[in-house]
């Protein structure tokens, strides 16, 4: 069904249709990745990032979510200390005998499409650990704090048996809603002295955060930020109120508490049944995102044809109005999506 809706990625791939050889090769890679071949896993993430037919082939091989994988999102403004915190947290997770995969997202340059991905610089204590898989992802134009393929990469990691997955979002100065629809526990990182930010983003923060971290807790303004945060959360019922954890990530201080808070949150939502609801919501968001991405490709394709130009010219002449031209294009889009070459 998903394949029927078309293929995402570069237009030249769209018409390629079936390629049993490639499909077989990718299934082989997936088999190897499932057996623990990190090279195969890494290559498959690249395939997902490139999109198109190859990505679709891989995605088809991924079943629904494995119930025993758990995903933690780490978000917060640039400079909040996310990478350093993640480094400290990785230590706790690994000490707890958990294998962890990290997807660290950084922005792509809108001009050059290139990116500097520097998160690993902060994570050298786990650089060669067999228990930690780190993958840097460039956002590749995706807004919302994640990269184009973050969600599918997460599903791949689950399929390959990584029990714990962390996603570190792009820091863009506001709360990233996408992370909430992709992860099971959302950790929002703040710093002392960010009272104004707490006030300004109150609604968004409360919506996404399961745990608040006040990192750099040795800096001035800790108490005030904590007060602002507690004030903002006071209206929530006790059992839904996010924990607040203080950390000094550069010293590793508070990482134990944060890991404990994550475990407690996990236990609570597992027991209350909320986790099941969340995952349904995640699936819905994922499916919708999938459809949207494919529609967008088709739309780009449509606007590259003279079909759009004709309507534009007609609007220019006054021969047709905007809604009417829009209807024509929507009909075209529909037939493009359903065209035989896409099946």
């Amino acid at each position: 069904m998903l394949l029927r809706c078309g293929l995402r990625g570069q237009p030249e791939i769209l018409g390629a249709g079936m390629n049993p050889e490639l499909e077989q090769q990718l299934q082989g890679e997936l088999e190897r990745a499932r057996k623990g071949d990190r090279g195969a896993l890494a290559r498959l993430i690249s395939v997902l990032e490139r999109g198109g037919y190859g990505a679709a082939c891989v995605e088809r091989g991924l079943s629904a979510r494995a119930a025993d994988s758990y995903t933690v999102g780490i978000t917060g403004a640039p400079g909040a200390g996310k990478s350093t915190l993640v480094n400290a947290l990785l230590g706790e997770m690994v000490a707890d005998a958990q294998r962890v995969a990290l997807l660290a997202v950084d922005p792509s340059s809108p001009l050059s499409r290139g990116a500097l991905l520097g998160d690993r610089v902060r994570m050298h204590s786990h650089a060669a650990s067999p228990a930690v898989f780190i993958r840097s992802m460039a956002s590749r134009g995706q807004l919302g704090g994640l990269a184009v393929a973050t969600r599918s990469a997460r599903r791949l990691l689950e399929a390959c048996g990584w029990p714990l997955i962390m996603i570190e979002t792009v820091g863009v100065g506001q709360v990233e809603l996408d992370v909430a629809s992709t992860t099971d526990t959302v950790v929002v990182v703040l710093n002392p002295g960010w009272g104004d930010e707490v006030q300004a983003n109150k609604a968004g923060l409360m919506e996404v955060a399961d745990i608040f971290v006040i990192n750099k807790a040795d800096k001035a303004g800790l108490e005030a930020t904590r007060r602002d945060l507690e004030g903002a959360l006071a209206s929530l019922p006790q059992q839904r109120r996010p924990a607040i954890v203080e950390t000094v990530a550069t010293e590793g201080r508070g990482a134990v508490d944060l890991w404990a808070a994550i475990c407690a949150h996990r236990q609570a939502i597992e027991e209350s049944g909320e986790l099941r609801e969340r995952r349904l919501g995640q699936l819905r968001a994922e499916l919708r995102g999938f459809v949207e991405a494919h529609l967008e490709v088709a739309l780009d394709e449509l606007f590259a044809t003279d079909c759009a130009d004709l309507q534009l010219a007609a609007i220019g002449r006054g021969a047709v109005d905007m809604p009417a031209a829009g209807d024509v294009l929507l009909a075209e889009l529909w037939s493009l999506v359903n065209s035989p070459k896409r099946r």
Binding site: S108, S112, R113, G114, A115, L116, L117, G118, R120, V121, H124, A127, S136, A138
Partner: peptide
Amino acid sequence: GFEVIMIG
């Protein structure tokens, strides 16, 4: 236009 992964 490259994606550069820096590991220090």
